[in-house]
């Protein structure tokens, strides 16, 4: 028999080694998240998955499940924090949804919808982030990067190429391309790479694929992200290529 903790009053069973997030999703309970991906180790950077655990705040994607925890997720206090986090991400980058190919499939946008974010509220920073269109088949629009490191994790741990990395600290932190020239065309990136399919927002786009599905008929147009929790339930890690990764904080 497995142990349980409570999530918003419901008993959630868990296996040892599971995080609160993994156990919740496996039990069909949605906890909002952005940098968590079921095939990768947690990164714990976006803080959108914050929950209240025995009265203290913690990120559920990194918190090991323990018997008897009292986890509160869908409460006003916590949702207000999530809303502010999403607002800050919108104000920090250049997120022009009407012109974005990812609109309707974007996790950041879907979280905004679901949390009822009507405005970024803060002063928009409007940073200057030139795109990298050097590659014949792939466009990088850095304006939308939320620094979740999913592409970094996928490229290092699965593709074994380490095409992407984060550089800088604090507000100057940004995504870079690992090549002498700094341009994507000079990397070993390939259309089949896992790294191309994990970006939750609209940074990494395959060229000449625009608007294959019309706006209004995309994933989160169909149903709210909170109703799609099972799609994010834990599954086998993406097959690793086994190349050690020097740019990720934890190695591989």
């Amino acid at each position: 028999m497995s142990d349980t903790f409570t999530l918003d009053g419901d008993e959630i069973p868990f296996e040892s080694g599971q995080t609160v997030m993994q156990a919740a999703l496996a039990a069909g309970h949605y906890v909002p998240h952005l940098c968590y991906h079921p095939e990768f180790r947690p990164h714990g950077s976006c803080k959108v998955c914050t929950v209240k655990v025995n009265g203290r705040f913690a990120t559920s994607c990194t918190l090991p499940a323990q018997a008897g925890l009292n986890v509160e997720s869908n409460i006003d206090e916590v949702n207000a924090i999530r809303r502010t986090l999403v607002q800050m991400l919108f104000a920090e980058g250049n997120h022009f949804c009407p012109t974005c190919e990812k609109s309707g499939n974007c996790v950041l946008q879907a979280l905004g919808y679901d949390l009822g974010v009507m405005t970024a509220g803060f002063r928009h920073l409007f940073p200057d982030r030139p795109v990298d269109a050097s590659h014949p088949d792939i466009l990088l629009d850095f304006n939308r990067c939320i620094l979740c490191e999913l592409c970094v994790r996928a490229s290092c741990e699965v593709d074994g190429k380490c095409v992407f990395a984060l550089a800088g600290r604090g507000i100057t932190k940004h995504l870079i391309v690992n090549s002498e020239s700094g341009r994507l065309v000079d990397t070993e990136v390939d259309l089949a790479d896992k790294a191309l399919s994990v970006c939750p927002v609209g940074v990494i786009l395959v060229k000449r694929k625009g608007f294959a599905v019309p706006i209004g008929e995309r994933r989160y147009d169909q149903s709210p992200i909170s109703a799609q929790a099972l799609a994010d339930a834990p599954r086998e890690p993406a097959a690793p290529a086994g190349r050690p990764c020097s740019s990720c904080e934890e190695g591989s």
Partner: peptide
């Protein structure tokens, strides 16, 4: 948000 006209901001 400023919208499309704000794309000139950089």
């Amino acid at each position: 948000t400023g919208g499309l006209p704000a794309q000139r901001n950089h």
